[in-house]
Amino acid sequence: MELFPSLSFSVLCIQILVGLSKATILFIVASGLTLILGVLRIPNLAHGSLYMIGAFTTYSIATAFSQSNLGFWVALLLAPLVVALIGLIMEQGLFRFLYKRDHLMMLLFTFSFTLVFADLVKLVWGSDYRSLAVPKIFQGSYLLLGMPFPRYNLFLLLLGPLFAAGLWYLTNRTLLGKISRAAAVDREMVGAVGVNVNLVYAAVFVLGCYLAGIGGALVAPTQNISQGMDHSIIIEIFLIVIIGGLGNVWGALLGAVIFGLTDAIGILVAPQFGIVFPYLAVITVLTFRPKGLLKSIW
């Protein structure tokens, strides 16, 4: 007797691939959050809002350039920069003065940013949802194991390892990465040896926001761009960062893969309660490894 009659091998494989391509976007956004959390110690709830702003900006830029085939690619280049600029203003204008404060204060401060951003997005783009077509090259799907697999998801799948490698190189092999890792451990000591810590903090924050913007740009063609997408993503990426280990980029990757896979398979097993499974996975992980799977910088 088969337990799940609809669950054939090829369906399962495709679903796993779809889950992994979703995990790519989660990983890119979560890695930005984990960098900010690890180095600056800001539990940045506004990260989800930046992701949403990234998606909306992508929509606007892509539709502005819709005559040429390159609309989406221009947007993918520019929208994260816009988000990074917003991040720079946030950090240099406000967060800079609050580093001495309690974490709870920071959390609430970033939450007030989510409130402000939610209404600003409503002000600029209205409360209707938008949708963006997948770029021309990636329209249609490939046949894998007799099942259709969207080309755009394949593109996302390839992008994931690329970003992981890039972030690994940045944090382990470049000067900025090394300084920021040192600043995460002991800010005052790094300042004492003559590094401009303020600048490093700003750079890491901007980089984190840039990653949120990229995540928003990449997700734009795959789902409706709507108000409220900030709320759903921020909890997911926070959980990913927590189960991966705070401040650990590889942890974010691992967490994103766990989250994406349990989500994708959960929908197959129990359609109505599919979204329960990632949360169950998180609870299981945290019950056995309270500090996350990989070593946390904290």
Partner: peptide, 20 residues
């Protein structure tokens, strides 16, 4: 106003800055 959460958010920021 329709933009209530905007006001709420700004008010929160001011509170955190000036009335911790």
């Amino acid at each position: 106003t329709e933009y209530l959460t905007l006001i709420l958010g700004l008010m929160m920021m001011l509170t955190i800055f000036f009335l911790p």
